[in-house]
Design a protein around this nucleic acid. Structure first.
Lengths: 198, 198
DNA sequence: CTTTTTCGTATCGACCCGATACTAATAAGG
DNA sequence: CCTTATTAGTATCGGGTCGATACGAAAAAG
């Protein structure tokens, strides 16, 4: 049983790569009018969802799997276009904080880069989607462990997260209190909870 | 219930894009020694699995979501490197047929581009993988319908496929008889079976 | 026998991307 | 303190992807 050949993981890989290619093509079409490349839109989408620990060039580079030099160029372009704002961190003056500008927010709102995907998944039952999310998330976590890469996630399934009250949470790693909405943003210091026995 | 906001599809999209990015980074690392770009390896993998109707530049362009001009350049490079062979079609002398050369086969065997993925998914139960495959496949089919793109698949779930005997199948669209192994290759004239009631 | 359509190639320019080298700020270690 | 090492980010360069456009040749349509 252990060494049995199972092709299904490869089928899943093929689907993921193919969907990735198609969504990139979608992004390319979306960005044509504004002369934006797929990676630019991916960066904007990330910044629209990153929390306070994760809105830096290095975090974005880790997220996209690109080098910091490459990402630096991307950010330079987005800055020139007025789609993002960069400002110094108060404490560590090496780090640059990033956020979408009003124009950047507006652009994402107009382009709706996830619209095609939402249409494509509207007839899939919530339960099947949850199962698929769970399987892919596990693949992602293992893949990143093997690559010593940064894991991203939100507080919902993070082992550092502590619930202080009905609406107030706390990050045990950084010591900050986090509001409800902030617990649903993407974080780069995410640590997966240990799987509990079913 | 109908208009309820459900974020899970977006979570799934994020996972697919992120896994796609990471696998592309993996491909980039794999191809560094041979100076091959991710798209080159993707093309080789496709050609290693394409059936007799699908081993053409146009089919590859549809599969990757790129233009035929772009793919033509990719194939030129792979040909110069001796990784593929191109030859004219006997009947329609416009079309070019492609196949891996011995060197191309050997390269794929050595690089094992799916190895990291197989490791990452080895602890996911076959059942969860099957569910994820099913959900993503549905998303892919809808996505391609909306984009009027070509759907790819194999005979297992194709409505053109007819079983003649234990081991011999037939493609009702093209009229050819297909051996067992060939029914598991990727085909560009795939037509999904109509979903049967459960 | 045109006219149109389809498959593939050639050329060009914009720009992505990694590699390398660099600066500046912080951390570490006496 | 005063090195030394590490980390965040930028600048520059070259190879190569990619879409757009134009082109050629074969097949299909009429």
């Amino acid at each position: 049983m252990e060494g049995r050949l199972d092709k299904n993981p490869l089928v899943l890989l093929e689907l993921v790569e193919r969907l990735g290619n198609l969504m990139r093509t979608e992004l390319r079409k979306s960005g044509t009018d504004e002369s934006l490349q797929p990676v630019h839109l991916q960066a904007l989408v990330y910044l629209s969802k990153a929390n306070r620990y994760s809105n830096t060039p290095q975090a974005l580079a880790d997220y996209l799997g690109l080098t910091k030099g490459t990402v630096s160029q991307t950010l330079l372009l987005l800055d020139r276009r007025g789609l993002i704002e960069r400002f110094e961190d108060d404490i560590d003056r090496r780090v640059v904080r990033l956020r979408l500008s009003a124009a950047g927010e507006r652009l994402l709102y107009e382009l709706q880069p996830a619209l095609a995907w939402q249409n494509a998944t509207r007839n899939i039952s919530p339960n099947r989607i949850r199962n698929a999310v769970s399987a892919l998330r596990e693949a992602l976590e293992t893949l990143q462990d093997d690559n010593e890469g940064t894991m991203f996630g939100d507080c919902q399934t993070c082992s550092w997260s502590q619930k202080l009250s009905q609406r107030i949470y706390r990050c045990g790693r950084m010591g900050d209190r986090l509001s409800g909405p902030e617990t649903r943003r993407i974080c780069r210091i995410y640590q997966a909870k240990v799987e509990e026995a079913v």
